[in-house]
Design a protein around this nucleic acid. Structure first.
Lengths: 250, 250
DNA sequence: CCTAAGCAATAAGTATGACTTTATTGCCAT
DNA sequence: ATGGCAATAAAGTCATACTTATTGCTTAGG
């Protein structure tokens, strides 16, 4: 994970800002940070640089480090996404689920045009594996295949911005299984759609790949929103939060 | 470019990395940076922090600042987007146009559900202004309204990640006008689609708003791709041009 | 002869103090 | 009231000394 001292302090401050402890417009002063965390100016300044890079703050001479309005924040930064998830999981998951709904169908269409044969074959293999594990009720293995499936579609789209969103999709999928939202045997229609998507990408059927993915994510979005409203007090969190050892390095 | 020294050096190094001058895997050492730019250790380290925050590099003790593989870069960072545009405008615009195609229809659908009356009214007003300026052939004013229109749709979607992409859309729109890619009088169908989208968002017709936006961005994507392949060397667009692939404006 | 333990060299990471720049604030004169 | 002119406060920059972790070599042990 990142630099020892720097990373720890950054994480604390990032969480606090994301959680609204320091609301937009409020100011932090570097010498306060030094005192509070017992760090030197070098470290404090570098933490500020990192926060500034995510557009959470801006340093102004004679006034201090001011927290920027929320709409300025770089909402796509993976670190910030984690902080926001920790602060208000419900709202952030909703945002992420909607983003996924937008991107994956187009990514599937692009993959149908541009995917290498090797990747297409792997997608078909993964979809078959999902059929098997769904039947067996092996949810963990199913999810692993599911995560890998979507990661591969996004990568095969040939669009580096789409590819980057695999973390977002992964977070959503993990959250669903971690919350018992998935039925013990994943819905057959979902499994079938994965197979259809893989086959369409393999055969280059752009339109059907897009449409099948649209169906899939529409259903997933529905399920996610239902889960979010029905669990106002999300409990326990089976290791999603990533506090201990910074997951997601890539 | 905010910070004085820091910002300048960061910009140079960011451009270079984005352009492939320092390919992934290569290492930069901070003392080299100090010499090259005539800066102090503090500044050099903070520049590294900024680059690390965008995931362009990672500092490792005893080895140096190593450039990370391209797929690790945070492709959504506005700064990096600018650097990539400067390095390879064609490829980056293609990526951005595709992203836009994915997001805007869903954003329009969301806006139809969630937009405040005030914003919806403003969208209708903007679409009417586009009708007028299109008829008059006032392309600059037309584009300004167009930019504002899409910015507002993204904002009204209520999804902060969508809202953040207004810069991307703006970049695409500006590029098209700056290239004489659009006809003197924007195509009526595009103008009409803007009106339809505004009206659907106002009336809460989610499905039609999404579909109309899908038509709009599909046409825009076509036009952008055509412009990218047909104009390898951007120059001052003599005459009305309208290359064969000329598409409407958005 | 090859593996494993230890050592030294190196470059990032941290700490500290002095100095510079810049924007705000408030006073003063117009 | 308006305009400009200091005083000032906090970020920004610089220079240097010290710490820590990694790598690669060297040597001890099997």
């Amino acid at each position: 994970m990142g630099g020892g001292l720097h990373g720890k302090v950054l994480d604390v401050l990032g969480r606090e800002i994301a959680a609204g402890v320091h609301p937009p417009g409020s100011v932090l002063r570097t010498d306060e940070m030094e005192q509070r965390f017992g760090i030197s100016r070098s470290v404090a300044r570098e933490v500020v640089r990192s926060l500034a890079s995510i557009r959470l703050v801006v340093g102004r001479q004679r006034v201090g480090i001011v927290v920027r309005p929320r709409e300025d924040w770089n909402a796509f930064d993976p670190q910030l996404i984690r902080w926001l998830l920790a602060a208000d999981r419900t709202a952030q998951l909703k945002t992420l689920a909607e983003l996924r709904t937008a991107v994956e169908p187009i990514a599937a269409a692009a993959a149908a045009l541009r995917a290498a044969d090797e990747d297409a074959a792997r997608l078909v293999a993964l979809s078959e594996r999902m059929v098997a594990t769904a039947r067996a009720g092996d949810l963990d293995t199913f999810m692993a295949a599911d995560v890998e499936f979507h990661r591969l579609v996004l990568r095969a789209s040939g669009n580096e911005m789409f590819a980057q969103l695999h973390e977002v999709v992964e977070e959503l999928l993990r959250w669903r299984t971690g919350h018992g939202l998935m039925p013990e045997h994943p819905r057959p229609v979902a499994v079938r759609l994965h197979c259809e998507i893989a086959e369409c990408i393999r055969s280059g059927d752009r339109a059907r790949a897009e449409e099948a993915m649209r169906e899939l994510v529409a259903e997933a979005l529905e399920g996610t929103l239902a889960g979010l409203t029905s669990t106002p007090a999300p409990r326990a969190a089976a290791g999603i939060t990533a506090t201990p050892g910074d997951r997601s390095f890539n």
